[in-house]
Design a protein around this nucleic acid. Sequence first.
DNA 1: CGGAAAAATAAGAATGGTTCTCATTTGCGC
DNA 2: GCGCAAATGAGAACCATTCTTATTTTTCCG
Lengths: 156, 156
Amino acid sequence: MSAKENQALKQVLREHELKATSQRIALLKLLNGAIEHFDAEEIYLELRKRQKNVSRATVYRSLEALVDQKLVNKLDFGDGRMRYEQSKGEDEHHDHLICECCGKVIEFFNLEMEAQQLAVCEEHNFFPSTHTMHIFGTCANCQHIQTHAQLASDSN
Amino acid sequence: MSAKENQALKQVLREHELKATSQRIALLKLLNGAIEHFDAEEIYLELRKRQKNVSRATVYRSLEALVDQKLVNKLDFGDGRMRYEQSKGEDEHHDHLICECCGKVIEFFNLEMEAQQLAVCEEHNFFPSTHTMHIFGTCANCQHIQTHAQLASDSN
DNA sequence: CGGAAAAATAAGAATGGTTCTCATTTGCGC
DNA sequence: GCGCAAATGAGAACCATTCTTATTTTTCCG
């Protein structure tokens, strides 16, 4: 089964003109089922934990190659390091709500917003390639926590 | 006249609970009339050029203090360094079109888009504090240049 | 399957933006 | 003017990322 998955991933890599090295396969496998957005260091450590011998440099180079081939998305949440997620296809674009309290990232997609963006580009004769839209704030859960903390301190 | 400007800037700093040091005044003065978005190194070099003795550390620390006080905006265009611009007030929010070809940054504001953002937040019970919306692509001018280059190579 | 050429890797040095340390200086209330 | 808290200068430290170079793998072809 794992052998079959390996074979499939090898295929994917070859279709994208990338040599199917064990490191790249392990990397894709890691990102494959992941819901979270990993940074390079987390990926490096996780691959190490899984007994794969990988160097940091390879993690970065492989990620870059995979991003170039659009197999992986590179995300910038503005905290000084990049995150990576498996790309689910050409048309899976989404934007992000980022909780400043717990770091949780909520993905969303809003068609009207995308339409507005195109309108703005047209207005400025600007030809768009990609965009990032990050809304920072407090998620529902952290709002509750803060409310409770507030109540507790008020009662003193 | 410069003395008067200095006095005014001192006042501004004091109103924001910041000591009015010569370095901070020089920094504010530099950002004051600037249309461009400077990075910390550019600010450091420019202040040096103006015979102000400032250290890099002070540039970073002062910028941070000014950003905290919302006298300055910190912008992340995703190229590994932060840019700074004078803040024109609480309600001067704008987003950016960033040319991947020449680096030009065009500011825009679109009310409908802002409204959509609030709608998305509400939908997710998310309480927004700030957001960044960056559209990367090619500006009108660079599109012309590329078209010309294309025509030139086609005629070979 | 074996062997060669090209590409990828490991390890760690180097880089670049930013932050920290600590001794010295400065702003400002008294 | 004095004194103390806060700010500064200089450079070390930091951290994510990229580069270097010798070594290892992959792929391809006979």
